[in-house]
Simulated assay, not measured.
Amino acid sequence: MIRRVGTAPARDKRHRLRPGVYALLPIGNRLLLTWQSGSDEPLQLPGGGIDPGEAPVAALHREVREETGWKIAAPRRIGAWRRFVFMSEYDLWAEKLCTIYLARPVHRLGPPEEAGHRVRVVPMADAGHWLSNPVDRAALRRVRATPGLLG
């Protein structure tokens, strides 16, 4: 069973399953995050939805490149969480199935490809304060609690 974080599903709404992949991207003792204009979540882990027919790790590479402009290596799955939200950009009530990976940013290819995205690098010690998304915070807690994951 995949643990739910955040608010319970709205009982009077039908939620559509939205599988997605997201990355924790440590750079030394800092964490690379993305900021998206117009989002309800000021800073978040880079990532997003898996396109139909797309493999999760391929989606992870694509989403990180689109939202940060970075190429990543060595993705390692660290967990999955469910979250029920209203996605205003799609006018959709969603059950987000969020699979989180720990990966290494290896090369900045350029600026983010998606309009409205900006990269932010914050101290690892402060990252939990910047992340408003309960899945992102849960993944960060798991990585911090697992010896050796962050090097």
Results as ranks from 00 to 15, higher is better:
residue 56 P to A: 13
residue 117 H to P: 00
residue 139 A to Q: 03
residue 88 S to P: 00
residue 74 A to E: 14
residue 85 V to R: 13
residue 17 L to N: 05
residue 110 G to H: 09
residue 139 A to V: 07
residue 47 G to N: 05
residue 114 E to I: 01
residue 144 R to A: 14
residue 120 R to G: 01
residue 132 S to H: 10
residue 46 P to C: 06
residue 132 S to P: 00
residue 58 A to T: 11
residue 37 S to A: 14
residue 101 Y to G: 01
residue 15 H to V: 10
residue 72 I to Q: 02
residue 22 Y to G: 01
residue 86 F to I: 08
residue 54 E to F: 04
residue 133 N to Q: 13
residue 112 P to I: 06
residue 140 L to C: 11
residue 8 A to V: 07
residue 55 A to T: 01
residue 118 R to L: 12
residue 140 L to V: 09
residue 14 R to S: 14
residue 7 T to K: 09
residue 15 H to F: 12
residue 31 L to I: 13
residue 7 T to F: 02
residue 121 V to G: 08
residue 135 V to L: 07
residue 60 L to G: 03
residue 98 C to R: 02
residue 67 E to P: 01
residue 33 L to F: 09
residue 149 L to C: 09
residue 49 G to C: 02
residue 80 A to V: 12
residue 129 H to N: 14
residue 36 Q to L: 10
residue 56 P to R: 08
residue 28 G to L: 11
residue 5 V to W: 03
residue 131 L to D: 05
residue 126 D to Y: 05
residue 19 P to R: 14
residue 87 M to Q: 13
residue 10 A to W: 06
residue 87 M to L: 15
residue 38 G to H: 11
residue 14 R to D: 12
residue 39 S to D: 15
residue 85 V to K: 11
residue 100 I to K: 02
residue 10 A to Q: 14
residue 113 E to A: 14
residue 51 D to M: 10
residue 71 K to A: 14
residue 10 A to E: 15
residue 107 H to I: 00
residue 1 M to A: 14
residue 73 A to Y: 02
residue 82 R to S: 12
residue 86 F to D: 04
residue 43 L to K: 08
residue 1 M to F: 09
residue 18 R to H: 13
residue 120 R to S: 07
residue 63 E to V: 00
residue 139 A to N: 07
residue 43 L to F: 13
residue 15 H to E: 10
residue 2 I to T: 15
residue 110 G to E: 07
residue 15 H to Y: 10
residue 126 D to P: 00
residue 140 L to H: 08
residue 151 G to V: 04
residue 143 V to E: 06
residue 70 W to G: 04
residue 131 L to R: 05
residue 132 S to E: 15
residue 131 L to F: 06
residue 150 L to N: 09
